[in-house]
């Protein structure tokens, strides 16, 4: 029951509506992409789900619970993981320390934390080599791996990623998406992916929402959207 449900969500930023009655749903085990142009409300949606922004109207439900009014830091314990835009790793902390901060809510169960840590190093072997290094010295790709691993340290039921491909070399983008696919396929992790590279995202996800001005404009199965004429013109266009 890790259904995530946003209903009629409105968020106002200094007079302008960043979200304008947004309704989306992510079911347990799904891989959903959230697409749209800049300013469509993708990042705002994720920040609302994490509790970093308070909606003026509407509700957010997760796992059958209404979390609209719940403090942001408490939502992590419910199983919401958020890899923010621009990675936001802590550059003055070592790789190890970054990962430990990711397991803040599990701090009382030492065994589980060290087990999860081993799992992360298995998944991202590069991070093991860099354990004692300051996170600020990592390459863009490594930093993105760290940001994902750090979020996974809290053992989330849903992982939300905000433009993980931003600023990465094309080869690195493909590698990172392979990791996401693996996490989804092997561990059954629910994923909500915000992405500018729409074509890649549609190849990975099973469903997608396309946002425009804080609302859902088009919704459907990824395989349908990728051949949809409206989508192709507006979002897949010339960039690939």
């Amino acid at each position: 029951m890790s259904n995530l449900e946003l209903k009629n969500l409105t968020i106002t930023y200094g007079g302008a509506k960043a979200l304008n009655g947004l309704s989306i749903e992510v079911k347990e085990g799904e891989f959903v992409a959230l697409l749209g142009a800049n300013g469509a409300g993708k990042t705002t949606s994720l920040r609302a789900i994490s509790g970093l922004l308070k909606p003026t109207t509407g509700s957010i439900r997760f796992g059958g619970e209404d979390i609209t009014k719940l403090s942001g830091y408490k939502r992590v314990a419910l199983g919401i993981g958020h890899v923010p835009e621009g990675r936001q790793i802590f550059p003055d902390h070592t790789v190890d320390e970054n990962l430990q901060l990711g397991s803040f809510i599990k701090r009382k169960s030492y065994k589980e934390v060290s087990q999860t840590l081993e799992e992360m190093f298995g998944l991202f072997p590069k991070l093991r080599e860099r354990r004692k290094q300051m996170a600020g010295t990592l390459s863009g790709g490594e930093a993105q791996m760290l940001a994902i691993a750090r979020s996974l340290m809290s053992r989330p039921r849903i992982l939300m990623l905000d433009e993980p491909s931003l600023g990465l070399a094309p080869q690195m983008v493909l590698e990172m998406f392979r990791y996401l696919k693996k996490l989804h396929a092997e561990q059954g992790l629910t994923i909500l992916l915000v992405e500018q590279q729409a074509r890649l995202a549609l190849q990975l996800a099973s469903r997608a929402y396309i946002l425009e001005r804080g609302q859902v404009k088009i919704a459907g199965l990824a395989e349908d959207l990728i051949i949809d004429k409206r989508v192709a013109e507006a979002y897949l266009g010339t960039s690939h």
Binding site: R47, L52, Y73, S154
Partner: peptide, 14 residues
């Protein structure tokens, strides 16, 4: 130290 560096990121880590 994390809170000082980035308050929002600290919140989404719990």
């Amino acid at each position: 130290r994390a809170v000082a560096h980035n308050n929002d990121t600290s919140i989404i880590l719990g």
